[in-house]
C-alpha cells in the first residue's frame, strides 16, 4: 500500500504536540514526581522546616509502618483497616452487589417501577456532593432526622447513627451514593445478551436462580471485574464521608483519604502526607494490576 504523504513534517508535528506535552508534564508528571520527592523530606507549612526542608530518608515511611502503634486509632494501619472494610462493604458488596441485584431484578422488564427505581438511583449519583452530605446529615439526625422519625413510629428507638454506628452509616451512605454506576454498567451489559439465551434456558427448565447463575453471571463476569476495578479505586480514594463524620468519632471513620488530608492539611506535615499518598498510590496500582490480571485470564479462558 502506498503511504500517504504526511501533512506536516515530524518536526512541525512535534511542535504542535508540545503544548499538550507541557500540560501533561506540568499537571500530572510534576506533582507525581514532586510527591515522591516530598515524601523523603520533613517539609511542613510553618516553622524551621518550612523554608529549609531536610532530606530525612525513609523516616516518614518508617513512621507509617511503625508496627508498635500503627493499629491504634488515628494511625495509618487502623486507617487502612477502616478503608478496607469500607471498600468491601460499600463498594464490593454495597454498590456492585446492589447494582447487580437491581439490574437483574429489572432484566427484560419494562414499566414504571423500573423507571422510578433507575431514576432514583441515578439521582443519588448526580446530586452535588455538599447537598448530598447535608441531606444525609438531616436524614440521620438523632432527634429531628427523617430516618429516626420513621423508626420511632415503629417503636424502634432513636439511635444516634453517626455517633454509635459511624462506619456502618458511611458505608450505607456510599452505597446509596454510588450504586448507579454499577447498576447502569450491568444494565447495559445485560442488554447485550441475546434474549434467546435466557429463553432457551427458560424453556429447558432452568429456575430463576439457575438462569442467573449459569447464564447471566458467566456472561457478565468481564463486566463485573471491570466494574470492581473502577469502584474499588474510586471508593479507596473517596473523601465525601468526611463531610458527614469528619473522620470521627474518635477516628472511627478515618479513611486513608481522610488520614492523608488531616496529616497534610490539618497538621501541615507535608512530608509525612506525601509519604502516605505514595503508599496509597502503590496500593491502588497493585489492586488495579491484580484485577487486570484476573480480567486477562478470564478473557483468555473464553
Amino acid at each position: 500500500m502506498e503511504q500517504k504523504p504526511a501533512i506536516f513534517s515530524a518536526r512541525v508535528g512535534a511542535l504542535f504536540l508540545l503544548p499538550a506535552l507541557a500540560f501533561v508534564a506540568l499537571f500530572l508528571l510534576f506533582p507525581f514526581v514532586w510527591v515522591i520527592v516530598l515524601s523523603f523530606t520533613n517539609q511542613t507549612l510553618t516553622g524551621a522546616t518550612a523554608a529549609n526542608p531536610e532530606f530525612v530518608g525513609l523516616a516518614n515511611y518508617e513512621r507509617l509502618f511503625d508496627f508498635d502503634r500503627w493499629m491504634r486509632a488515628g494511625e495509618f494501619g487502623s486507617s487502612l483497616l477502616i478503608t478496607v472494610q469500607f471498600v468491601l462493604g460499600s463498594a464490593l458488596i454495597g454498590q456492585a452487589g446492589l447494582g447487580l441485584l437491581i439490574a437483574w431484578l429489572f432484566y427484560r422488564r419494562r414499566g414504571w417501577l423500573r423507571t422510578v427505581v433507575t431514576t432514583l438511583v441515578v439521582l443519588a449519583w448526580i446530586i452535588p456532593e455538599v447537598v448530598v452530605a447535608f441531606a444525609w446529615f438531616a436524614f440521620l439526625d438523632r432527634d429531628a432526622g427523617t430516618f429516626n422519625n420513621i423508626l420511632d413510629a415503629f417503636g424502634l428507638g432513636r439511635p444516634d447513627w453517626l455517633f454509635n454506628y459511624p462506619l456502618l452509616s458511611i458505608m450505607v451512605f456510599n452505597t446509596w451514593r454510588g450504586t448507579a454506576f454499577s447498576m447502569l454498567l450491568f444494565q447495559s451489559a445485560l442488554e447485550t445478551i441475546p434474549p434467546s439465551y435466557i429463553e432457551t434456558a427458560e424453556v429447558a427448565g432452568a429456575s430463576g436462580w439457575q438462569k442467573f447463575r449459569h447464564i447471566l453471571l458467566p456472561l457478565l463476569i468481564g463486566h463485573i471485574i471491570t466494574d470492581l476495578i473502577l469502584i474499588t479505586l474510586w471508593t479507596f480514594n473517596v473523601f465525601t464521608p468526611y463531610l458527614l463524620t469528619g473522620g470521627g468519632p474518635r477516628n472511627q471513620t478515618q479513611l486513608v483519604s481522610i488520614y492523608t488530608y488531616e496529616t497534610a492539611f490539618q497538621f501541615f506535615r507535608f512530608g509525612q502526607g506525601a509519604a502516605i499518598a505514595v503508599v496509597i498510590m502503590f496500593i491502588n496500582l497493585t489492586l488495579a494490576m491484580i484485577y487486570l490480571a484476573i480480567l486477562r485470564r478470564q478473557r483468555a479462558a473464553t
Binding site: P194, V203, A204, T302
Partner: peptide, 20 residues
C-alpha cells in the same frame, strides 16, 4: 404455565448456544 412447566423444547434462529 411458565415455559419450564410445559415440557417443550425450542430451537432458535440464532441457535442460542452459550459461548462460555
Amino acid at each position: 404455565l411458565p415455559p419450564r412447566d410445559r415440557d417443550i423444547a425450542m430451537v432458535f434462529q440464532d441457535y442460542a448456544l452459550y459461548p462460555h
